[in-house]
Design a protein around this nucleic acid. Structure first.
Length: 689
DNA sequence: GAGGGGATTCTTTTT
DNA sequence: GAATCCCCTC
């Protein structure tokens, strides 16, 4: 629904203008400020307006001095959105913090390498201290110095066996390292600890070597690289990741006045979007530059736009922001342009920092806000609410779940999710952390290898199936170049008629068609299926190799081979309808009337009709939400900082404030003594529909 | 029944 | 990679 047509009382317009005017004053007087914009208050709009205004006011002058406005966002998606809303301008650099910072510091390799060397030394020291103190290293400490040396020597020799069998069972592992077992009978008694010890020893060694090579000015060790594709540092090969990049930046800037001056002269205005999510090292860095600019009387200001209560990522500064910027000017916006007054009331209770929002509109239509406490099948509940809220294609229902697994289940493709989850590469290979991204990422490029191939097949199928799809959307331009349009049409017609019901059948159909087909079609098909796949068997083999036989491990038992075959066969036996559900999910084109999201995934979005399914447990914390509900309306902000209560509260706040019109929370566990506090916020609790 | 060790099991999200 | 479950041994 669009609420823009609702009347806004003139005094509210006046007040809203005043708030914006307040921002402008600080821009004019070059004072840093924080714009505390609660959910739905039009934060991004204000940010864009500010940017435009600065250009109007100082654009000419900035052009002359070769200066720019820097706008820092948390994600690439946000950066793209802001760029689009701004339109073409050369006066504003919009980028994520990492891109921006790497651009600034990467030319200074000499200092970076020095810093890198320092870090290697510090880390080396830390590891050695751990080996001397930690409980898991006890068996190592029990060895004499000579024995320790011998162990390192022996393990260096057995490095490849070590890595090959590392993921195997403890028995297999011990077996493979029987020499060690003979020489040092104690050290292998606990395999987990042994692996940790050996990993530390290996890493100490490689760090020492790297330090040596840096000192010797070895040509491969004269540059620090930042690679955003990886999440971990590889200090020994001079590669750093996200957090280390920020760490180096903070250190580099704080000890280098020249750099501070370059930054504040180049970017007299810095605006930070979603500041609460920004790493605290960044906030500190900006603070340092700000202070230095004042010291040397250069114009510089930082405008922070965001909302502490919407900090739901661990890395963000969140409430620490106030510690770092104690004296900063705060501008609050109390108007809400998104939600009904009933929803705003609930949200006000949940955010316990004293900010009280109110709707900017007059005569907001009646809205339904309820809290249910009952044990019920989700589908049953949803069915009832579909009719209650008149859900249809134009008036969709959005359901929030805590985990991706649940979202996959509710969205109807849990069999696909489970296949990957239980495959050897993810499960035994302990790549649990990649599962979500590889299976559920909305960015095609971030999907796993197998997932990406299947994505392409589906993309081909469904784009062809859609009449309005332009040929160009389906085939890359160079494939089209010398193919007659009519031939292509013909090809599309034929492919549309392929009717395999399962993935296996569909793949077989395509390949059969490919083999029998006209040579002129070939390149088009090759675009869909990777060149190395010439048959269904090839494809199956590829899946097996990728997900099951990815290391030349110890011998695999016949039973294992059989089980893996069955798992993969079953996967290919999943019907195309299920794959379509998955495809619709990862392309965010689900045509259903009911759409599922994780709480986290809804950040920044808004929906008319929201059902939040909730239980007490989250992750390993049994009472994560249970504990929050007990104190829901209480104002313990200061005591809660840094606790699970704070993060649960923020997450709940984000979820609740997505709703514009109808909101319903279904709590599926016992409320116990949280009853009264929940009633205080939501009114009477409902036990049945 | 205490403790040691192996196996299994988890949340979210971004760069 | 840590927490927890589970099994074994003393």
């Amino acid at each position: 629904m669009n609420y823009d047509t609702l009347p806004i009382p003139p005094e509210n317009i006046e007040l809203e203008n005043q708030i914006f005017e307040n921002i402008l004053q600080h821009i004019r007087s070059k004072e840093s400020f924080v714009f505390e914009a609660g959910a739905g208050s039009g934060k991004t709009y204000a940010l864009i307006q500010t940017l435009k205004l600065i250009i109007n006011q100082s654009g000419q002058k900035m052009k002359k001095h070769n200066q720019k406005i820097l706008c820092i966002t948390y994600t690439n998606v946000a950066a793209d959105e802001i760029k689009e809303r701004l339109g073409a301008t050369t006066l504003i650099d919009v980028s994520t913090i990492h891109d921006c910072v790497w651009g600034i510091i990467s030319p200074h390799q000499k200092q970076l390498v020095e810093m890198h060397q320092d870090k290697l030394i510090v880390e080396l020291d830390r590891m050695k201290t751990d080996l001397e103190n930690e409980r898991w290293a006890e068996k190592y400490r029990n060895l004499s110095k000579e024995e320790q040396g011998l162990l390192i020597e022996m393990m260096a020799e057995k490095k490849s066996i070590y890595y090959k069998t590392k993921q195997s069972s403890a028995a297999n592992f011990k077996n493979a390292l029987s020499d060690i077992n003979v020489q040092f009978p104690q050290i292998l008694s606990n395999v987990q600890n042994f692996k940790k010890i050996v990993d530390f020893l290996f890493r100490c060694q490689s760090y020492e070597e790297t330090i040596g090579k840096i000192k010797a000015k070895d040509s491969k060790f004269t540059k620090v690289k930042y690679d955003p594709r990886f999440n971990d540092d590889r200090l020994e090969i001079m590669r750093i990741s996200h957090s280390t990049l920020l760490e180096y930046t903070e250190r580099f800037v704080s000890m280098n006045n020249m750099l501070k001056q370059i930054i504040c002269d180049k970017y007299p205005f810095v605006l930070v979007d979603e500041y609460q999510d920004t790493n605290q090292l960044v906030i500190k860095t900006l603070r340092t530059v700000d202070e230095y600019a004042k010291e040397i009387s250069h114009d510089f200001l930082v405008g922070y736009y965001g909302d502490v209560k919407q900090n739901i990522y661990n890395e963000g500064v969140g409430s620490n922001f106030r510690e770092i910027n104690k004296d900063i000017i705060r501008i609050e916006k109390v108007f809400n342009r998104r939600s009904s007054p009933e929803i705003i009331d609930v949200a006000n209770f949940i955010r316990n920092d004293g900010m009280v929002q109110r709707s900017i509109y007059e005569g907001f239509p009646k809205s339904d806000v309820s809290f249910y406490n009952m044990v019920i099948e989700r589908q049953e509940f949803i069915t009832l609410y579909r009719s209650k809220w008149n859900i249809n294609k134009e008036n969709k229902l959005h359901c929030f779940e805590l985990t991706n697994e649940r979202v996959a289940e509710q969205s109807g493709f849990i069999s696909i999710y489970d296949f990957f989850k239980n495959s050897k590469w993810y499960k035994i290979g302990k790549r649990y952390e990649f599962l979500r991204e590889h299976v559920l990422s909305l960015d095609e490029n971030k999907l796993g290898t197998i997932q990406k191939i299947i994505f392409r097949i589906l993309d081909f199928k469904y784009k062809l199936g859609h009449e309005t799809t332009m040929l160009l959307d389906v085939f890359l331009e160079d494939q089209m170049k010398d193919v007659d349009i009519l031939i292509l049409r013909n090809l599309i017609d034929k492919i549309q008629k392929l009717s395999g019901e399962t993935l296996k059948e569909y793949v077989q159909d395509i390949i059969e068609f490919y083999k029998a087909g006209d040579e002129r079609y070939d390149r088009c098909i090759e675009y869909v299926i990777a060149e190395e796949i010439g048959s269904y068997e090839d494809f199956k083999q590829l899946v097996l190799e990728r997900l099951y036989y990815f290391t030349e491990d110890e011998e695999v038992s016949n039973e294992d081979i059989q089980q893996n075959e069955i798992a993969v066969e079953n996967f290919f036996g999943i019907d195309m309808d299920t794959f379509e559900l998955w495809y619709r999910f990862v392309t965010d084109t689900c045509p259903n009337e009911v759409i599922y999201h994780t709480y986290h995934g809804t950040k920044g979005l808004e929906f008319d009709n929201v059902i939040i399914f909730m239980n007490s447990k989250f992750g390993r914390k049994d009472d994560y939400f249970g504990n929050l509900l007990k104190v829901l309306p209480e104002d313990n902000e200061q005591e809660d900082i840094g606790t699970d209560l704070e993060s649960a509260r923020n997450l709940f706040y984000v979820a609740v404030t997505r709703a514009t019109k109808n909101l319903c929370i279904v709590y599926l566990d016992e409320l116990g003594n949280a009853l009264q506090s929940v009633e205080k916020v939501f009114g009477e609790i409902k036990y049945k529909i």
